[in-house]
């Protein structure tokens, strides 16, 4: 089952930037790329928990602001020599609104 939740307008997120969604399971970072694709991943770097939403977005990747680990936005996998991954969440844009699949993010839904 998917639970699509309207979390805001695409334009609420700066191009090549991110905003966070607060949940009971921690923050989710929702990114907007230069080509207006949207991705949602955990807002905590697997390295030292850095807020990925504050990183520089380039292509479909983000560089963590604390120690420069690079993570793919679509797969959540660390790039280059680094190892690690963050969770990804389904997200899509409908008529300019961002819809996030919050199935795994609601209280009491912890798998």
């Amino acid at each position: 089952m998917t639970d699509w939740t309207d979390i805001g307008a695409l334009t609420d997120i700066p191009e090549r930037g991110a905003r966070v969604v607060k949940t009971h399971l921690g923050c989710v970072a929702v990114f907007r790329t230069v080509s207006d694709e949207v991705f949602a991943i955990d807002d905590a770097c697997p390295h030292k928990g850095g807020p990925l939403s504050e990183g520089i977005v380039h292509g479909r990747s983000v560089t963590c602001p604390l120690h420069n680990m690079v993570l793919r936005l679509d797969t959540g996998l660390a790039q280059g020599a680094d190892e690690g991954a963050v969770s990804t969440y389904a997200v899509r844009v409908e008529k300019g609104r961002i819809m996030l699949d919050t199935t795994r993010l609601r209280r009491g839904q912890v798998a």
């Binding site: 939740t5 979390i7 805001g8 609420d12 997120i13 700066p14 905003r19 966070v20 969604v21 607060k22 949940t23 009971h24 923050c27 929702v30 919050t102 993010l105 609601r106 209280r107 009491g108």
Partner: peptide, 16 residues
């Protein structure tokens, strides 16, 4: 100011 706040706060929704 908006950019410094969360886009949405799902913790504020009533527990089901």
């Amino acid at each position: 100011r908006a950019l410094y706040a969360p886009l949405v706060d799902l913790t504020l929704e009533a527990a089901e």
